[in-house]
């Protein structure tokens, strides 16, 4: 699986741990929200950082106080049509001030990357490989952005003289 970050393909440096998999003594892992809440103390005792995986239905409020601990939050796309993650991304960035890496992972397609980029996602780990060039092009699909979102703090009417 290819991961695109900052315009380059990178190696998968994180182990995405299933809920029933044993926690390895070392190495970077991501865990589900459920597991984080259940095994928070043990996970915090590990030497390496822990990343968090969120599903479309997860509420960010539940981990608001912990958010800044995570160097990585993964938004897991079970299906490309589930738009809840777009709201979740914006809330993480704009309401909860999450400044770490925000990664889309799973079943999304290149045509959604323009939107994902706009709501604050900065790394892409799609089920079907997408080249770094295609990601870059997708981000530039539209040179005009009417709305304020995570990437643009103001709507077009405040950014440009119209």
């Amino acid at each position: 699986m290819v991961i695109i970050k900052d315009g380059r393909a990178i190696a998968g440096e994180w182990l995405h741990l299933d809920n029933d998999a044993a926690i390895p003594p070392s190495g970077q892992v991501t865990v589900s929200l459920h597991r984080w809440q259940a095994e928070r103390t043990a996970l915090m005792a590990r030497p390496e950082p822990v990343g968090l995986r969120l599903e479309a239905g997860d509420a960010p409020d539940a981990i608001a106080d912990d958010l800044q601990r995570f160097p990585l939050i993964v938004l897991s796309f079970a299906t490309m049509a589930d738009g809840r993650l777009f709201s979740l991304a914006r809330l993480l960035r704009e309401r909860f001030g999450f400044a770490g890496e925000l990664r889309a992972r799973g079943d999304f397609i290149v045509d959604q990357i323009f939107f994902l980029n706009r709501v604050g996602v900065d790394t892409f780990e799609p089920t079907e490989d997408i080249s770094p060039e295609a990601v870059g092009q997708a981000i530039r699909t539209f040179s005009v952005r009417y709305q304020a979102a995570t990437d643009e703090k103001q709507p077009l009417y405040r950014r440009e003289r119209r």
Binding site: G83, F114, F115, L116, F142, Q147
Partner: peptide
């Protein structure tokens, strides 16, 4: 119309 055109958050609604 302009606000809703390619709204990044609301293009995959229920």
């Amino acid at each position: 119309r302009q606000w809703s055109t390619f709204h990044p958050e609301f293009s995959y609604l229920p």
